Simulated assay, not measured.
Amino acid sequence: MSGFDSNPFADPVDVNPFQDASVTQATSRAGERVGEYNPFSASEVGNYSDTTTIPISAATSQPAVLQTSVEQSPQATAAAAQANLIKQQEELERKAAELDRKEQELQNRTASRAAGGTKENNWPPLPKIFPVKPCFYQDFEEEIPEDYRRVCKRMYYLWMFHSATLFLNVLACLAYFTADSKYGVDFGLSILWFILFTPVAFICWYRPVYKAFRSDSSFSFFFFFFVFFFQVAVYIIQCVGIPGWGNSGWISSISMIKSNLAVAVVMMVVAGFFTVNAVLAVILLKLVHSKYRRTGASFTKAQQEFSQGVLTNRSFQSAAATAASSAASSAAQGAFGRNQRN
């Protein structure tokens, strides 16, 4: 009858599935296990040591520190000293080999000059049909040591630039004379400077420096320095361009701007060439002086070379012998004349 007493229109009893006794028991046990778990406890460590292997990442380790010794052992010191001595020995052997090579090159050049005294001249390079033959022998690769070859070639290029500048100076002075007839003196002097200074520069300062580098001659070095110093002064004068001196310098070219602009421009170009000559001459003079200081040349050696060269010169010997014989004959004649008078 209890089934008939229930109200069929009443709300059914709410049933919570999570209130089941088995579910509640399982969740409570899981919570207790998670809250009480300590992986670093003694029991857990014992379990792992008995049954499982702890991974490397889980193990704590202190990084290894390489301890460097402040004091070296005697064996290490001796090895370092021996290595240093070996290095110094190799450096000395290399320098000695370099000196031997240079000395051998110098001996070979001296021997070749002594053996080949009749070596044919090759400068200036003129055609064989030309009536004038070359006057000098020049070979940088054969006669000039490698250390001085570059500077010697630059001096040769400076002489070539010097000659070209003097030729352009003739053309500029010709334009100067064309613009104003009163500047005919400059044109005439420019021709004289070109004809005179081109060979004189080659003989007086280029060939001496070539001989100095070729034979390590102290006298040639001093002769070059003496002459080239005046050449630098001449370059400066030509660069300035004093009117009436035959040089197309800055003063002469600027004075022509109002009269004839085209001629002034041509003269300014030549003035720039003279300026470049002066600058290059100063630079090369310093380079040659630095090379000269490395050769061991000195004024005493220059005096010895000059005296030996003069005394061994055949022309000087013949002139001295002629002078001595004439002096002796004149003295003998004077003595004979006095004896006759007496």
Rank of each mutant, 00 (worst) to 15 (best):
I129C: 00
F140M: 12
I129A: 05
Y137E: 08
P145Y: 05
W123P: 00
K133C: 05
A114L: 11
N121T: 13
F130H: 05
Y148P: 00
N122F: 10
R149F: 08
P131T: 02
R149K: 15
E142P: 00
I144H: 02
Q138E: 11
D147P: 00
N121R: 11
F136N: 11
I129V: 06
K133A: 11
E120P: 01
L126M: 07
C135N: 09
I129W: 09
F136I: 08
I144E: 03
N122S: 10
Q138V: 15
A115K: 14
V151A: 13
A114K: 12
I144Q: 02
E142S: 12
C135F: 14
A115V: 13
V132G: 01
I129D: 07
K119Y: 11
K133G: 05
N121V: 06
A114R: 10
R150S: 12
P125R: 10
A115M: 13
F140R: 01
I129G: 02
A114S: 13
P127C: 04
K119P: 00
V132P: 00
E120M: 14
Q138L: 15
K128S: 14
L126R: 03
A114H: 07
T118Y: 04
E146D: 08
N122H: 09
Y137V: 08
E142W: 05
Y137P: 04
P134V: 12
F140A: 11
W123V: 08
F140P: 00
V132E: 05
Y148A: 11
Y137I: 04
Y148F: 09
P134F: 07
D147Y: 05
L126Q: 04
V132A: 11
Y148N: 09
P134N: 10
P125S: 13
E143P: 02
N122W: 09
L126P: 01
Q138M: 15
A115P: 01
I144Y: 04
P124R: 00
E143T: 13
E141R: 09
G117L: 10
N122P: 07
E143V: 07
P125A: 13
Y137L: 09
G116H: 13
W123K: 01
P145I: 03
I144V: 15
A114W: 01
W123C: 07
L126Y: 06
I129H: 03
K133Q: 12
A114C: 04
D147H: 08
D147E: 13
N122R: 11
N122A: 12
Y148R: 08
E143G: 01
V151G: 03
G116A: 12
I144N: 03
C135S: 14
P131V: 06
G116M: 07
P134Y: 08
I144F: 03
K133F: 01
R149T: 06
V151E: 10
